[in-house]
């Protein structure tokens, strides 16, 4: 069947309009649910970094658990001054876009959690580069701003079975109890040691064999992100 150009043109215009309208309706309708999912996942990650598992918890209740443990949140700048103290706004900071700003303009979020035993833990979001794409995570510290309470990492596209293992327990568990500063107070961060860290190494954990670049990426991510908080740590330690 041959159709005139006019017919084809009108046909395509109608098609485009119908498709665009219906897609926009779907997208707008589903947006809240999708954003909820992303928010809840972030909450689960933050909780996991202080070793609170929400795997068994219903999705809706994650928010309650989060509100129970996470008591406050603020954002500081590189000089250690608080620039944002509204919890909702701090939560909404997207590390992916924040890290692209010049260092002086970056807002550095931190969350404070009260654990079951009454301890306070400080949770710091991390963002860096793995081998194939972004890696990110959270690290939580005791109030001595030195001892690690727990960590969680995730990644977008690391090699399955190798670099992708950073989100597994066997990789994150050894971080617990490690310290960031050497005895004379210099910032050493955590080293991810190829071939395995010595048992009594206070700053080292095992690397993933075969996942060298991802391991290095995680190490650099922890170093870089925590470095920005140094002024804040100093201020808090002096108080």
């Amino acid at each position: 069947m041959e159709h005139s150009n006019k017919y084809i043109f009108i046909y395509s215009v109608i098609m485009v309009v119908v498709v665009a309208v219906s897609l926009t309706i779907v997208a707008v309708q589903l947006k809240p649910a999708q954003e909820d999912n992303i928010r809840i996942e972030k909450m689960q990650n933050i909780l996991a970094s202080v070793n609170i598992s929400t795997a068994e918890v219903q999705k809706k209740q994650v928010i309650d658990v989060y509100n129970k443990y996470i008591v406050s949140a603020e954002a500081v700048n590189i000089k250690g001054d608080v620039v944002e103290s509204d919890q909702a706004k701090v939560f909404a900071i997207d590390m992916g876009s924040e890290i692209k700003k010049p260092i002086e303009d970056q807002r550095l979020p931190l969350f404070k959690a009260t654990l079951d035993n009454g301890d306070i833990a400080l949770i710091i979001p991390l963002r860096g580069k793995g081998l194939w794409g972004p890696v990110w995570g959270y690290i939580s510290l005791k109030t001595d701003y030195n001892t690690v309470v727990g960590t969680i990492f995730d990644h977008k596209a690391e090699t399955p079975g190798l670099g992708a293992e950073i989100n597994q327990d066997w990789f994150t568990a050894p971080f617990k109890g490690k310290t960031l500063f050497s005895e004379n107070g210099t910032f050493t961060s955590i080293q991810i040691v190829k071939g395995g860290a010595a048992d009594d190494d206070p700053h080292g954990v095992d690397a993933i064999s075969g996942g060298t670049i991802t391991s290095k990426g995680v190490e650099k991510m922890i170093y870089d992100n925590l470095l920005s908080y140094q002024e804040y740590f100093k201020k808090m330690n002096n108080q």
Partner: peptide
């Protein structure tokens, strides 16, 4: 899609 997903 990979380019979009991996954020190059």
């Amino acid at each position: 899609l990979f380019v979009q997903e991996r954020d190059y």
